[in-house]
């Protein structure tokens, strides 16, 4: 089961023949992911790493029956690639690209909403597309499918779901859990941009419904109010235990801490308000990152034996 991706997921890589696309596709294939081919406009009909290259997503999906897209297209064109993938009929779109203009993502969200609601003119098809990212490490269901740039070997199949706004911070959390003997059901990097596809709440709701997931670790950071919204969702809708770490306690307000979304502005997005909301929702908040693995492990044991 897990969420989003599994061993049957068939992936098309957009920006397949570029440096990033080539390197990471290779890594995904070695991990065992089913990469069906790629799209690079103008290179259709050629073969790259033994796989077919198509000019358009529509053709790629039609010929391979792929149900997921993985995007490594440069920032000026990435938003268009997301919309191309969504309209070609894949169910999951994972966009790794960092640096997409925020208003491009606003247009993407409007487009996806149109596809889903069927209300936005001709585009409406009543079809839900799950977009993960942009500016994220991707999605991995350990030992089944890796669609992203995360190091595969640190993961282990298991029952802890992880959703995170950060890249290397996620690896840190995964690694600590794996070392504690706690495997992961699926690890979703939702990315560090202010306007993104899947948010915490959507990922949490998928994890809550997934029978393989027993607990969820949510890794947030300063900026925006996604953590506060997630806290509300957890309080009202979740039975599974949720753990959380939020980065940026000591970050100065008004400065963008690497990620476009990680900025405390006009009193919103502060660390303290997030922690308060998470605690109120009954979420176990981890203050010291180094204790994440241990804390989750101890709490879960407690739950089983008591």
């Amino acid at each position: 089961m897990a969420i989003l991706l599994n061993k049957n997921s068939k992936i098309i890589v957009q920006g397949f023949t570029g440096g990033q696309g080539t390197f990471h596709s290779q890594q995904c294939i070695e991990y065992g992911s089913k990469i069906a081919g790629g799209v690079t406009p103008g290179k259709g009909g050629t073969v790259h790493m033994g796989l077919p290259v198509f000019n358009t997503m529509a053709e790629a999906v039609k010929k391979t029956g792929a149900d997921a897209a993985l995007i490594f297209v440069p920032p000026p064109y990435a938003a268009d690639s997301i919309m191309e993938a969504a309209s070609a009929g894949v169910k999951h779109v994972i966009c790794i690209t960092e640096g997409i203009p925020v208003l491009d993502m606003v247009r993407v969200k409007k487009f996806l909403k149109g596809l889903e609601s069927g209300a936005d003119g001709a585009a409406g098809e009543g079809r839900k597309v799950y977009l993960v990212g942009p500016n994220c490490p991707g999605v991995i269901t350990p030992e089944e499918c890796k669609a992203g740039i995360m190091p595969g070997y640190i993961h282990k199949k298991g029952s802890v779901g992880i959703v995170s706004r950060s890249g290397t911070l996620t690896y840190e959390a995964v690694w600590q859990l794996t070392k504690e003997g706690l495997g992961q059901s699926t690890v979703v990097g939702i990315g560090g941009d202010p306007v993104q596809g899947m948010n915490f709440t959507e990922a949490l709701s998928l994890f809550e419904k997934d029978p393989e997931t027993r607990a969820v670790v949510m890794i947030g950071e300063i900026g925006g109010n996604a953590e506060e919204e997630a806290a509300r969702f957890v309080k009202e809708n979740m039975k599974k235990p949720v753990f959380s770490f939020v980065a940026g306690k000591t970050a100065p307000p008004g400065r963008r801490m690497g990620h476009a979304g990680a900025i405390v502005e006009g009193g919103s997005g502060a660390h303290s308000s997030k922690i308060e909301a998470l605690k109120k929702a009954g979420i176990t908040v981890i203050e010291n990152l180094s204790e994440l693995g241990k804390t989750v492990s101890e709490k879960l044991k407690e739950k089983i034996y008591t």
Partner: peptide, 9 residues
């Protein structure tokens, strides 16, 4: 540090 989130943490 490598990565913005880990750097903040």
């Amino acid at each position: 540090v490598n990565g913005a989130g880990l750097a903040m943490a």
